[in-house]
Design a binder for these strands. Structure first.
Lengths: 253, 253
DNA sequence: CGTGATTTTGAAGCATTTCAACTCTGGTGG
DNA sequence: CCACCAGAGTTGAAATGCTTCAAAATCACG
């Protein structure tokens, strides 16, 4: 099993684009469902995007859906006064663009955090294909449903966990996302800055930093190399216990 | 325009169920879209539920979607250790049940907060009908998309607003939900306890109470009658300004 | 009219933010 | 090669906002 940041396929050094040879099926078959469906039934544009590049932005007319084939994408939401927040992260196999289905224009911005390959299909084509192939619609709805449940869960842990536990859980979730995709779950490069992590978790970057330092002190995680971005999870179980211990009773219903 | 709590159609006193004569179209036509689509193309079961009654619960096999025809529904999410949280509120025209599409079983519980009429359609029937009538699928996807965008917005204000501002915004959103549905937006009955509001907003019931008291002191809202549940919004503009003023820079990206 | 649930209010404790200083890293140019 | 700089990350101390705990007030219901 390749580590997330030693495998050039999924975590290339910035300068050189990776050769487009992809091993789609080295992971949980469920992750590849959308990709497989598209490949079988739909014409799609495949596109490499680089960190910082935008896949779609707010207000942009909606006509396509996208699937992440490799890499990592962040979804940003903006408020009227220019404030922004990371509202979601998308890994391989995840869809992008549902936000535009309502008003035919996107309500959030999708930005690459890593060199990523994005498959783009026309929404109209998806609908058309679903006439003949119910599996298309089924995969779409499944992805949507998982997305919603995921958001609700994130919302909940957001309300019931302390900052430290939230950071720990964030790392665990990232790890499990990698594991599901056949990547090494114990060792990966954080592609978000402390500020972005804070935005995603609803805490300040200083708090993120402090929490990470705490987790290191506790021996639950560690870092490779110089910049504190190459993470190593030293005890998944212990981390999970740490999260459990961080439960508050703050927001029961 | 009827006030929300004087109109027996949408806000009946508990003892007697209202006569099932509904004036579906006295509101923003967009709200009624799902209802209209269902009425035209799909067989549905219409059902009255009373406060506390469950429409679907966690783990229950998924096979139907529902639309709220009148009343108010809360969606509860549970964690492993029994903690629960109000993750969403559903008004007239809103759909329920998307959470079950992924794994064929529901991941959250839907409970009535008011006497409500629920229209239930089989998910399979929806898919079947969408073959002949694209509008069915279009309405469904639109609802889903709005739902997601709404959650992201809620998530954002959750991260960027102080407790007081969050409560104020909550009341404003409720008000605007009523307005969109042709109900009096300045005067309505809070159908959630302070505890439920706190759960929904991610703060304690005491904080909710304090925030409400503050809003009353500031002259932005007021109460009717005895129990502090019958709300009157005294200045929508001023409330909105209050929310703006409550912005923090805590979680910028 | 009492009993239990809901709501309000106060005061103390705690977690997180804020502000500020400092370190580390990587890149640029002398 | 080293000095310098900007950006990212860390850490400390004070301030703030929310929670917690506790008690009183109000309301709903039989």
């Amino acid at each position: 099993m390749p580590t997330a940041f030693s495998d050039p396929k999924f975590d290339s050094a910035r300068p050189a684009p990776p050769p487009p040879s992809f091993d789609v099926w080295r992971c949980d078959p469920l992750i590849g469902e959308g990709l497989s469906i598209i490949e079988k039934h739909l014409p799609c544009r495949r596109q490499i995007v680089y960190p910082g590049q935008t896949i779609h932005s707010v207000g942009q007319p909606f006509s396509n859906l996208h699937i992440v084939h490799s890499g990592l994408i962040k979804l940003l939401h903006f408020s009227q006064d220019g404030r922004q927040q990371v509202v979601a992260l998308r890994f391989k196999g995840d869809w992008l663009g549902f936000d535009g289905m309502a008003d035919q224009q996107h309500t959030c911005e999708a930005v690459a955090l890593d060199i990523s390959e994005i498959w783009t299909v026309s929404y109209a084509a998806v609908l058309a294909a679903s006439q003949d192939h119910p599996a298309v619609l089924s995969a779409l709805h499944k992805a949507i449903s998982e997305d919603m449940t995921g958001m609700q869960e994130r919302f909940m842990s957001h309300c019931t966990l302390h900052a430290d536990a939230r950071v720990a859980e964030f790392l665990l979730q990232w790890s499990s996302s990698l594991a599901k995709r056949g990547l090494h779950p114990d060792q990966f490069r954080l592609r978000l800055s402390r500020e972005e992590i804070g935005s995603y978790l609803g805490i300040t970057l200083e708090s993120v930093s402090r929490s990470i330092s705490l987790l290191v002190r506790e021996g639950l995680i560690g870092f490779h190399g110089k910049g504190r971005r190459d993470l190593k999870i030293l005890g998944t179980e212990a981390l999970a216990e740490f999260v459990e211990a961080g439960l508050t009773s703050a927001t029961e219903a």
